[in-house]
């Protein structure tokens, strides 16, 4: 079993008030020291999954189970959840420009988070902020803390964002496409930082649609398709031998950076179903090249090999 279980989503289901299921069935695990990459197409529900863990979706009805450090979060009072948010679990967002309040210095915003959770003086909070910024590789952290978001480059802003997320020593860090808005060379810097955080023992949940990013930074990967987790497993194994037909197709569609250049890239015909028009059976069936009659009943997540979960009838439990 190894490391201690940090976050366990079990059949998480998320509905709009009108009954449309945005998340159908999301099950995944994050252990301490693990980095779980959550990949999938745009609109598949990656951000919604993250937001549900943080409890930031008040308008939507969630069912199933979100278990964090052994505590059930669903049904918890907002007051208690708030105490976890920012302290036990923290989140960083795609666009660090808009994620910070534009009218206050980044130092003040990091101080705020520290003082929300720990009773410390302004001076102590600022000292911690400066130390954190320094640890994140921000040059001249003391001056940087006094700057406003628009005065920093995208990379520095994202570092500040990570510093803020880490300021109360969370055991789970959720990063929603933290590098999508950044340049490749800056992305590499941020990914290196995330790897260090993971190695220091925190759990990381990294949302992205870039398989390369997952391969580089994560230990495990969960593939989301139309509101369902269709495959989960260790990164190396999934990359080398994807089980689910969707994962296979997704990996094949990435143009290679070396080796022979294919005449045409393999593509997936059709497009993902809308949340209110999911097929009865396997959600991937309309686009699947292996579809067979028994796909008409939605396959549950099964574990054909140790540690590898897949929701497809091609595999026996």
């Amino acid at each position: 079993m190894g490391a201690e279980m940090l976050l366990k989503l079990h059949h998480l289901h998320l509905e709009l008030p009108n009954g449309t299921a945005l998340l159908e069935d999301v099950s995944l695990n994050v252990r301490r020291g693990d980095a779980l990459g959550v990949v999938g197409e745009s609109g598949s529900g990656k951000s919604l999954t993250a937001m549900s863990v943080m409890g930031l979706l008040p308008g939507l009805k969630a069912s199933g189970s979100i278990c964090f450090e052994g505590r059930e979060l669903l049904g918890m009072k907002d007051r208690e959840w708030r105490r976890l948010r920012g302290a036990g679990m923290a989140m960083i967002f795609q666009d660090p420009m808009t994620a910070f309040l534009p009218v206050r210095s980044i130092g003040a915003q990091i101080d705020e988070q520290i003082r929300l959770h720990d009773r410390v003086s302004r001076r102590e909070a600022r000292a911690r902020t400066v130390a954190l910024l320094g640890r994140m590789g921000v040059p001249d952290p003391e001056a940087a803390a006094k700057r406003y978001p628009h005065q920093l480059s995208g990379g520095l802003r994202q570092r500040a964002m990570i510093a803020m997320a880490l300021s109360c020593g969370p055991s789970l860090l959720i990063a929603d496409e933290p590098t999508t808005a950044l340049d490749v060379t800056v992305q590499a810097q941020i990914l290196t930082l995330l790897c260090e955080i993971r190695d220091s023992g925190a759990g990381v949940m990294l949302i992205t649609h870039d398989m390369g990013v997952v391969a580089q930074t994560c230990t495990h990967v969960a593939v989301v398709y139309s509101g369902l987790v269709v495959e989960q497993g260790p990164v190396a194994a999934v990359m080398a031998r994807p089980l689910h037909p969707y994962t296979q197709a997704l990996l094949e569609a990435i143009p290679p950076l070396d080796g022979p250049r294919p005449e045409a890239l393999p593509t997936i015909p059709g497009r993902p179903p809308a949340p209110d028009a999911r097929p009865e059976g396997c959600v991937f069936a309309p686009r699947c090249r292996f579809v067979r009659p028994d796909c008409a009943v939605r396959p549950a997540l099964r574990e054909p090999e140790e540690g590898r979960h897949v929701a497809c009838v091609l595999y026996d439990a």
Partner: peptide, 13 residues
Amino acid sequence: EDSIRTARAKGAG
């Protein structure tokens, strides 16, 4: 705005 989402993610009431 995104920054309000951030504030809530920080644990602000």
